[in-house]
């Protein structure tokens, strides 16, 4: 084993790591936003729109990410859609992620008792305020494990982007391996790289979970102690 190949190519590997982080983060962000939009529309739309969204979800879920990516990158130009590898990768991850995130959010929305929305509506809150202030903060506690889980899975789909030449970690390290014949060292380094990313994600998830579930674990709100009587009468 000769791990000096890694130090020799440190700057390439570093930039590959950053590209992975970027495509992952971007893909998750796009997926979460699109998923949330889909879930919210599903809540309120008529049967026609719901049917279309249902089809979209079923089709994306039933086809492999690699095939979707090829279709987008190689098939796109014949539909007048020419994307750079990076953009195609981000869009692809976003589309692929959106359907899973949408399903997670949909479960979350249905888990909040309807009466809470009615109470908010009777106080004059708008549909958007109800979603943002009443439903999402609560369902976050319930769906965070599922969100973190799928975010990790999506991170492990990013190596697929190497096939359309996005210079991310797998692309760089397999390249270095092929060049220097240090296959084992580079593959081990890959494992460590993805492990670090997944670990980061799970730590972030734990922190969010603690924060979001304060109302279940604490007796009183501890964000700020009640100031000594600002006159309550």
């Amino acid at each position: 084993m000769d791990f000096t190949v890694l130090t020799d190519h440190a700057s390439e590997i570093g930039s590959g790591f950053l590209v992975t982080l970027w495509t992952w983060g971007g893909g998750v962000l796009a997926g979460v936003i699109a998923g949330l939009v889909i879930a919210v529309i599903q809540l309120s739309a008529g049967p026609w729109v719901r049917g279309v969204l249902r089809c979209y979800i079923e089709v994306i879920r039933a086809t492999p990410f690699l095939v979707q990516l090829f279709l987008l990158y190689y098939g796109g130009p014949s539909l007048g859609l020419s994307l750079s590898p990076m953009t195609a990768g981000l869009v692809g991850l976003g589309i692929y992620g959106s359907v899973y995130f949408a399903e997670i959010f949909r479960t979350g929305f249905t888990s909040i008792p309807r009466g809470q929305q009615e109470a908010a509506a009777m106080l004059g809150m708008t549909a958007w305020q109800i979603i943002w202030r009443v439903q999402i903060p609560q369902m976050l506690v319930l769906i965070l494990p599922a969100l973190v889980n799928f975010t990790t899975i999506l991170g492990k789909e990013t190596p697929v982007l190497s096939i359309i030449t996005v210079p991310e970690l797998t692309f760089v390290l397999t390249g270095v391996g092929a060049e220097t014949f240090a296959y084992v060292e580079t593959l081990l380094a890959l494992c460590v790289g993805y492990f670090l990313l997944a670990e980061l994600c799970s730590r972030l998830g734990q922190w969010l979970e603690r924060r979001a579930s304060r109302y279940l674990t604490q007796g009183v709100q501890q964000r700020r102690a009640l100031k000594p009587r600002e006159s309550a009468a």
Binding site: G115, Q116, E118, M122, Q138, Y215
Partner: peptide, 12 residues
Amino acid sequence: GMVFQQFNLWPH
């Protein structure tokens, strides 16, 4: 104003 059987406070 409306008051419900199940209170419907927002627990968070």
